[in-house]
């Protein structure tokens, strides 16, 4: 079994794993970080999005061994000192979540989107979140949340 080491939410971790272990399985099953979800088996839904070295990545689409040495941030690592990230805060304020299952991936994708487009139009947001499926919200409030978060993140 290969050993894989990386930094997850600021902590160094190292585990012996089966070669075929996906990054999302590593996070959920080996590290107990169950905030990252699995919604599909074809890399389509985005429930599993985390940040790797600051960029959003579908963690079901990557083997854990490919993540050797990287820095991973999951939804559990987004809030700092118990204070929600502006994106999390905006999702709450604008009712951008219902069942909450797509939410971790949606929030992680949205954070990266706003980093790349600090002042995104509605179209940019809708296009940018095309890789995250939400069955509950109809996206309307997610778009509002991302717009509001972008404003707040610009300060």
């Amino acid at each position: 079994m290969p050993t894989v080491s990386m930094t997850v939410n600021g902590k160094s971790v190292s585990r012996d794993i089966e070669d075929r272990t996906l990054l999302v399985e590593f996070l959920r099953d080996h590290l107990g970080l169950t905030g990252t979800h699995v919604g599909c088996d074809t890399s389509q839904c985005g429930a599993c999005v985390v940040h790797i070295d600051g960029k959003s990545v579908k963690s079901c689409t990557m083997l854990a061994v490919q993540a050797e040495g990287v820095t991973v941030t999951t939804i559990e690592g987004l809030a700092t000192d118990g204070k929600l990230h502006p994106m999390q805060e905006a999702f709450r304020e604008h009712h951008g979540l219902q069942c909450g299952f797509c939410t971790p991936g949606m929030v992680m994708s949205a954070v990266d989107l706003v980093k790349r487009h600090p002042n995104p139009s509605e179209e940019t947001i809708r296009h940018g979140l095309e890789g995250n499926i939400c069955r509950c919200t109809g996206y309307h409030n997610i778009v509002r949340a991302v717009q509001a978060a972008a404003t707040n993140m610009r300060g």
Partner: peptide, 11 residues
């Protein structure tokens, strides 16, 4: 929302 937004839901 707090638990869902912080990855603390229990599905």
């Amino acid at each position: 929302d707090f638990r869902f937004l912080t990855g603390k839901g229990h599905y």
